[in-house]
Simulated assay, not measured.
Amino acid sequence: MTLKMIAPLVMLLAAPAAAQTFDLEALIAAAKAEPPITIYDSTGKIVDMAEAFTAKYGVQATGEKVSANSQLEMLIRESQAGNVQGDVALLTDTPAAMAQLLPTNILESWVPGDIEADIPEGYRNPLAISTNANVWVYNTEKYSECPVTNIWQLTEPAWKGKIALIDPLTKGTYTDWFNQMATHGGDKIAAAHQAQYGKPLETDQASPAAAWLAALAANGPLMADGDDRISEAVGAAGQADPFMGLVSSAKFRDNADKGYKLGLCSGLDPWVGWTYTKLGLIAKGTDSPNAARLFIHYVLTEEGIMPQMVDGKIPTNSTIALPADEPSGLSAHLGALFNYDAATGLDDWETRQDWQDFWQLNHKR
Rank of each mutant, 00 (worst) to 15 (best):
M223G: 05
F178W: 10
E232H: 04
A210S: 06
L246P: 00
P208H: 11
L201R: 13
S207V: 06
A195R: 13
A240M: 12
T203H: 06
A240D: 15
L246N: 11
G185K: 11
M181D: 00
A192H: 07
S207F: 06
L216E: 05
A190I: 10
T175Y: 01
K188T: 00
M223H: 05
R229D: 10
L201E: 08
L201W: 10
G185T: 11
Q205N: 11
D187K: 14
G238W: 04
E202N: 10
H193F: 13
A190F: 01
L246F: 10
P242E: 08
F178S: 01
H193C: 08
A182D: 07
A182T: 14
P200I: 05
T183H: 00
W212C: 01
D187Q: 15
Y197W: 13
G226P: 03
D241F: 07
F243I: 02
F178A: 01
G235I: 12
P208I: 07
M181R: 01
M223Q: 03
P200W: 13
M223I: 06
I230E: 01
D204V: 14
A209R: 00
E202T: 15
W177I: 05
P242D: 08
L213D: 02
S207Q: 05
I189V: 15
G198F: 03
K188L: 09
D187E: 15
A233M: 09
A209S: 06
A215Q: 06
G238A: 04
Q194N: 15
A224W: 00
G245R: 04
G220Q: 15
Q180G: 13
A215P: 01
L222Q: 08
R229H: 02
D176I: 10
A182Y: 05
L222P: 00
P208L: 13
Q196P: 00
E232T: 10
D176K: 06
Q196C: 10
G238I: 03
G226I: 11
A182I: 09
G238F: 03
N219D: 10
G185P: 07
K199P: 03
V234G: 02
M181L: 15
G238E: 00
K199D: 02
D204T: 12
I189N: 06
T183E: 06
W177C: 04
L213W: 04
A210G: 11
L213I: 13
L213C: 04
P221R: 09
L216Y: 05
N219E: 00
T175K: 01
A209C: 07
Q239I: 06
A210R: 01
A190M: 14
G235K: 00
V247E: 01
T183L: 12
H184R: 08
D187S: 14
A192P: 01
